[in-house]
């Protein structure tokens, strides 16, 4: 094995350990690293002190479209998209850094009604759902920012959940203010 191979393998194991600490399951690790399953299971046991949980990943795309999960998912994906194409970054590294950025920002706010809603597994699945085009980003007609939406949903004049929160969220429902004239008239 060349020195470069050894270095890359070392980095992969380091990232895998980081991902396990962030809550990654073995299925995810198998998907985003080139380390074989046997080794991943051993690594998992060492880091967590217990055998990995078995079973299917139960998640569907609908969850990402519900109010609170939606802005959490969008926040994570915004971090992920910001870094995923940087030189020398790997998929696993981008996931680890983006998830850390996401959870660190959430924990910093200390909102009693809101916490780390998006698990690492769900964050990883979100990136895969975006890739397979089951979920996509749609620009809010009010704040002009891209939010996660179900693909093929009717997103004409889409308004994001932050500009128009549901009334049951304990936030008075505000009518989104119209986009500024300059934005509205831009072809």
């Amino acid at each position: 094995m060349s020195r470069l191979d050894l270095l890359s393998e070392y980095q992969q194991v380091q990232t895998a350990i980081e991902l396990i600490e962030l809550g990654a399951r073995v299925q995810t690790l198998e998907d985003v690293t080139e380390i074989n399953r046997c080794r991943l299971v051993r690594l998992y046991k060492e880091v967590r002190g217990e055998a990995p949980a078995k079973g299917q990943l139960p998640y569907s795309t609908d969850w990402y479209a519900t109010w609170k999960p939606n802005y959490h998912s969008t926040l994570f994906l915004s971090f992920f998209n910001r870094i995923k194409n940087l030189p020398d970054i790997t998929y696993s590294r981008a996931l680890a850094s983006a998830y850390k950025l996401y959870s660190e920002q959430v924990l910093m706010i200390e909102d009693e009604d809101d916490g780390v809603v998006l698990s690492f597994t769900r964050a990883w699945m979100l990136t895969r759902f975006i890739e397979s085009k089951q979920l996509e980003l749609c620009t809010c007609s009010n704040c002009q920012l891209p939010f996660v939406v179900l693909s093929y949903s009717l997103n004409d004049q889409f308004v994001c959940g932050l500009c128009a929160p549901p009334s049951r969220a304990g936030v008075p429902l505000k009518r989104p203010t119209a986009a500024t004239p300059t934005l509205a008239t831009t072809p």
Binding site: L75, S78, Q105, I109, D111, D114, L162, V171
Partner: peptide, 10 residues
């Protein structure tokens, strides 16, 4: 408020 923070971060 997490919603406030999320909007600004995004």
């Amino acid at each position: 408020s997490m919603t406030k923070a999320a909007h600004l971060s995004i």
